[in-house]
Design a binder for these strands. Structure first.
Lengths: 189, 189, 189, 189
DNA sequence: TATGAATGAGAGTTCATTCAT
DNA sequence: CATGAATGAACTCTCATTCAT
């Protein structure tokens, strides 16, 4: 039972590594199998197709990223502190998981990305969305659509993390703090 | 001579349309040829390879987007007005050119994207970069790296335009103004 | 012991059903296992290979069909009556066992079919062959090779049963009688 | 233009040869290509898929067989002579084209065979069907369904030709004549 | 006996690219 | 310049068969 999970996980991890390096097209199933140390055929025991594997990987990565970010989420603190904490954790996650960031960006700008998948995945982030929603209702932050807030949160962080991975920027802790300050100014009422 | 340009342009336009709809992998050269109304072979008269075509398309789209944005750029106005104008024009361009936005996002998150290409392409945006640089020096805006400014400018606009294209948000002129206000609060000193 | 026979039989029955519906190529061993309610591996305990299973199925079906036809065979009746009886029973069998007919037709027109198999299988029909042989010697029927008689007997019946299964003809008892009359006219001296 | 036809024809002929020898499953597209002296990919320029190739081959073989049989068909002769002539030509065709016979038998007992295909193909034999129909109306032959007549005509001939190809019988001209005599006795009024 | 995860060879098919015309 | 038939390597996926449990 544990071994099953391990093999499935090994396949997902191999796919993540190779896709983040070589893209969807550049990642042949046979290479995923080789990287995962399994036979080519067994992948189809766990996944229906390459597309299914990629969709599953996206959901898995998204869930794990949400779990990681939410780990230190403390609803008892003041809202502003909550928001800062979320941002810090998102930045931390993105900077520590460049492969995941690259993969998620590739996925969400590709034809794989569909409303159906997004609907499922956004549920993982419900507490975060709720936090910003409360802040909006309490008029701590501006009355902007969730999508805008999300863009200023996830997209900005992952875009910057991507640039960091590409060596175009050096995101020190201090710089991240200043970026978070700037984002706060953007959304504060 | 004009016909040459036309045929070359037709190929690029066909590639843009198909890639924005079906991705790189889902866009076969034969389909590009068919969409462009030319033979499959002739593409290789104008481009060395599929990769070369895609690289060329990226540079072309980037240049045209820069040209469009810079069209109404007026260096004689106050810096803050210049920045607002740039943002408005970028949003306008992104919202009016969803295919281009989708393609650029796909490209810049794919293995096609290389530092070398980015270096070339960033030159098209020299006046914009210079504008923000002046604002920084005059301490009108915060002392943040260009990459951060660029993220809050191009990435935010194209991410939002993508969401608009996907029907996830309705970016009215008024909302765009409020987003620009927020962005200004983010970077102002 | 009984269970063994049951499992082996279940496999053969599953194979018969699936092959008659989907052909040899369309019938994966894993599907046979599923249909039979056994594991994929156990099939190889009873049969050496897929080919061996199919060969065995052919022999089994052939033997059972011969047994069924010969059940009511009465050597004490006049030869002409014996022949009519045989034909009636063959038609009856074919019309009642469309899966078997379809499978046998597929098998005997495929590369599986070899002289070696046919030699074994034809033994099941020895009494029938002997009956026609006696009729030939007694000059009740024409002096035609056994193969021709067999064609006018088995092939005609199974071809017509196949057409019945495909809905191309409606073989009522009365029509079968008239066909048997016609066949009798064909071979009578 | 001629070359196109030649290459397409070469593929069909290679498929016919290999399928008649090794069956559908035993005939890989790559082997068809090799046998035809073309590349593997070009087959898909002429045919949508392996199934499409096989369907096309069936229709082609059926049409050519009908054309060959109908070549010497003379509607001005007496009906009985017409029928004998048809039978003789069918036997002649089957005995001279064992590959075609084996292929057609395989096809018509396989899941490839569908009512839709049969409907198309039966049109090639319209004159023959009409001939038997006239004979039936003029009460020269028994009042049996077309399917029965067809079975006694095509199926008997191809079954016997298959046995000849397998070396199970030696169909001399004289024997064929006697079989035709027998068939005539079967259907004559 | 029995399971079913695992293997890996090989299938059908696609498509970037070439080249005779 | 232009065509599109042709190539063949590489891909995704299947499945007969094996074997640790």
């Amino acid at each position: 039972m544990n071994q099953i999970k391990d093999k499935r996980t090994a396949i997902l991890e191999a796919a993540l590594k190779l896709i983040s390096e070589n893209g969807f097209h550049g990642t042949a199933m046979s290479k995923v199998a080789k990287e995962a140390g399994v036979s080519a055929g067994i992948i189809y025991h766990y996944f229906d197709s390459k597309d299914d594997l990629i969709d599953d990987l996206y959901r898995t990565v998204k869930r794990k990223s949400a779990d990681t970010v939410l780990e230190s989420y403390d609803q008892s603190r003041p809202l502003r502190a909550q928001i800062r904490q979320i941002w810090e954790d998102i930045f931390k996650y993105c900077l520590r998981h460049p492969q995941e960031v690259i993969f998620m960006e590739q996925y969400s700008t590709s034809p794989y990305y569909r409303a159906e998948v997004e609907a499922d995945v956004s549920q993982y982030f419900t507490p975060i969305i709720a936090c910003f929603e409360r802040a909006r209702q309490e008029m701590i932050i501006k009355d902007l659509p969730q999508s805008v807030i999300a863009t200023l949160t996830l997209n900005v962080a992952s875009s910057l993390a991507q640039k960091q991975a590409a060596g175009l920027i050096n995101l020190t802790d201090e710089l991240v703090e200043r970026i978070i300050d700037a984002l706060w100014e953007a959304i504060r009422e």
